[in-house]
Each structure stands twice: as structure tokens, then as C-alpha cells.
Simulated assay, not measured.
Amino acid sequence: MPLPARSNVRALIEDDRLYNMAAAEAFPLFNKAHLVVLEMPDRSGDVIISSFGEIDKDNFFDPRTAQVATVDHMKQVCTKVRPANDEELPSAYVEEFRFALDAELCKYVVDTYPKGTCAVYCTRGKDVDGPGVNFDFAVVISASRTSPQNFCNGSWRSIWTLEFKDDLQVVEVKGKMQVVAHYFEEGNVQLDAKNECRDSTLLQSPEDCAVSISNTIRHHEAEYMASLEESYLHLPDTTFKDLRRKLPVTRTLFPWQNTLQFSLTRDISRELGIEK
């Protein structure tokens, strides 16, 4: 939550104790819902505040650096980091797939989202030590841009769940994408668009899987962004027109000098006895 918004809420409540109690509950939920990205204090990387990396309310696992970050939700800062325990890390076999996919997705995110961040979490089967057993990943992509001096903010958030099904030799891919934009110059216009999709690819080597999954995510996200651009390109001629009052269009000037030609004017004149 931006600092001005926090100040406004505090001013409205006028009770610091009550504000701190409410904020202690609200800010962790806000940060996780918005996939807030925080820089680690040693600048070794960034940690995404998400339920997939949540160890407890204030500690979040970053799979790329294999560290656990402690965060201050209200200040939205990372206060310290520690190395992850063995119990918090996936097996070497699973890490091969996770590491390869993370590397491919980093290339994609750098090319597509300015200031974007991604992470790949093992959500099930992190102790799998070889072929023959299924396991799941979650891919999180978060990118945001705030420009209050230009009266606009925006963010992109996408979550992809990957099911590695060894028995079927397939990877099931399910995605949820969300775009939020807010323009507030001489008005208040907000966009909150969501989309879901699913796909699948063959279960191959870690490197081949990474390329295939990354291309699948790239394809669906590009397709969704293209559809958004197409729909909003025609927005003035469709949605905005539907919001207007339906009136006949004659493309002629209103004849103020001869209003008696309209039945309403004649009726009123007759009732008032002022007919010419």
C-alpha cells in the first residue's frame, strides 16, 4: 500500500493503537495478494511475498537464493535473511527441474516486464529423489510500476501451477493472469482484468522441460495482452457508446426558430392557450 494511502487511513482512524492492530492483520494479506517484491538487505536478490514461499507470517522463502527473508509488512521492507534449512529445500532431483525453469523464466521476464520478478517454488513432492513420482511447481511473475507524478499506477501478476505427471509423461500447465491499472488525473479510472488458461507439454529432461514450459507461458501471456490491446482499442466505439443514453441520430441542427413542428411543443402550447 502506498505511503500516502497509509497516512490517510491513519488520519481517518485517529487512533494509533487501533490502526496498528488493524494494519498488523491487513498488511500481510495485502502484500501476499499483490505479490509485493522486496529487496533483500544484502542485495543478494529479491523475495516475492506469496503464499507459496510463506514459512510463517513474517518469513518467506526465496528459492533462487535458497534464503529465508524476514519482512516488515507495514514498512514493506526486508529486515534480514538467513540460509534455508535442508527441510525447506527441494531434493537435488527436483532442484534440477526448478533451477532450469527458473533460468529460462528469468530471460523471459527480463525481456517482457520492466522491473519484473519471477520465482519457481516446489509446492508438492520436494523430497522426490528420482523418476517415477509426481511433483508440482508454482511459477509466480510479478511486475509493477508506480508513477504518481504522471497520475498512473499499474501491475501484472500471474501464477502458473505445473503438475509433473511422471506416469503420463506430461506436465499439466494452468495459469491465472491479472492486470491492474489506475489513472487518476482529473478523474478516477481503474482496470482490473483477469484471465485463466490451461495447457500441457511433454515431460522431458529438465532443460527441455524448462524451454517448453517457458514458451507455453510466454505464448499465453502474449496472447492475453494482445487480446486486451484489441478490446481496449475499440472501447470508445463499443463499451463507452453503450454507456450513453440512447437517442435518435438525425445529424440535423435543432430548429430553435420553429419548435412548433414538434408534437410536444404543440401540445404544451395548446394546453396553455398560446397557440399562434
Rank of each mutant, 00 (worst) to 15 (best):
N20T: 06
S205I: 06
G45P: 09
E14S: 11
A119K: 02
F262W: 04
V120I: 09
L260V: 14
W160C: 07
L243C: 14
P248T: 09
S44D: 06
A100Y: 04
V171P: 00
A66Y: 05
V189D: 13
I141F: 00
Y121F: 07
G125H: 06
D42T: 10
S214Y: 02
I274P: 01
V211H: 10
V128T: 11
R157G: 14
S7P: 00
S269W: 03
T250G: 03
R124D: 08
C209G: 06
P63E: 10
V211F: 01
F262C: 10
S214F: 08
K126P: 05
D111N: 08
D72M: 11
S200L: 10
T123Y: 00
F184G: 14
T65H: 06
R82Q: 07
I141N: 00
L12N: 02
S147D: 10
T201H: 01
P83K: 09
A100I: 07
F97M: 05
L235V: 13
G53T: 11
P41T: 11
W156M: 11
P131E: 11
V173G: 03
Y232F: 06
D86T: 15
D199T: 07
E39W: 10
R245W: 03
W160K: 11
D199P: 03
D242V: 13
S269I: 09
V140C: 10
V120L: 00
D111Q: 09
F135G: 11
V170W: 00
Q169E: 01
R266G: 04
A222T: 15
P148G: 05
N195T: 05
K115W: 00
L233S: 09
V249A: 07
D267K: 12
E96I: 04
V109P: 02
W256D: 10
A181E: 07
I141E: 02
I268C: 01
A226D: 09
F184N: 13
L12F: 04
V179A: 04
